[in-house]
Amino acid sequence: MKVRVSVQLKPGILDPQGKAVEQGLHGFGFEVDHVRIGRLIDMDVPGTDPAEVKAKALAMCEKLLVNPVMEKASIEVL
C-alpha cells in the first residue's frame, strides 16, 4: 500500500528555512504567517490492512524517519 509520512518541525522549534521563505513571500506582497517547512516521505509498504500498514510506518518513524527532539509526523495510508 502507498503510505505518505509527513514530517514537520514541532511547534516552538525554530524553522529558519520557513522564516526565510516567509520573508520571500512578504517580498512579493503575499500576506502569510507561520510558514513552516517539512518533509514528505512516500513509500510502498507491503500489506492489505491499512491499520497494520500504518503501524509499520509508525515503527519506521520511531526508528529512523523522525527525530522526536525536534520533529513530529503524521501518517496517511493512501
Partner: peptide, 10 residues
Amino acid sequence: PGALLRNESL
C-alpha cells in the same frame, strides 16, 4: 541528548 538544528542565520 538533544539535536543540532540549522544555524539561526541559515
